[in-house]
Amino acid sequence: MGAGRNEDTGVKREKADRTLLPGFEDVVVGATGRPKHEFDEPAPLASHGPARIISLCNQKGGVGKTTTTINLGAALAGYGRRVLAIDFDPQGALSAGLGIPTHDLPTVYDLLLGNKYTPAEVIQKTAVENLDIMPANIDLSAAEVHLVNEVAREQILARVLRKVSADYDVILIDCQPSLGILTVNALTASHGVLIPLECEFFALRGVALLIETIDKVRDRLNPAIELDGILATMFDSRTLHSREVLERVVDAFGDSVLETVIGRTVKFPDASVAGVPITEFAPEHAAAKAYRQAARELIQRGAVA
Rank of each mutant, 00 (worst) to 15 (best):
N115M: 01
Y117V: 02
E121F: 07
E121Y: 02
I123P: 01
Q124E: 14
T126F: 00
A127F: 00
A127H: 10
A127G: 13
V128R: 10
E129F: 00
P135C: 10
A136M: 03
N137T: 05
I138M: 13
L140V: 04
A143C: 04
A143L: 03
V145A: 15
V145S: 14
V148T: 14
V151G: 01
V151A: 10
R153M: 02
I156D: 01
L157C: 06
V160N: 03
R162F: 00
V164E: 09
V164M: 07
S165D: 15
A166P: 00
D167R: 15
V170T: 12
V170L: 11
L172W: 09
C175R: 06
Q176H: 15
P177G: 09
S178T: 13
L182Q: 02
V184S: 00
L187D: 05
A189N: 03
S190C: 10
G192K: 11
G192D: 12
P196A: 12
L197V: 06
E198K: 15
E198G: 07
A203E: 00
R205L: 13
G206Q: 11
V207G: 02
A208E: 13
A208T: 14
L210Y: 09
L210M: 11
T213H: 06
I214N: 05
K216T: 10
K216S: 12
V217D: 04
R218H: 12
R218N: 04
N222W: 08
E226P: 00
E226G: 15
L231Q: 09
M234A: 10
F235I: 08
D236R: 08
S237F: 10
T239L: 10
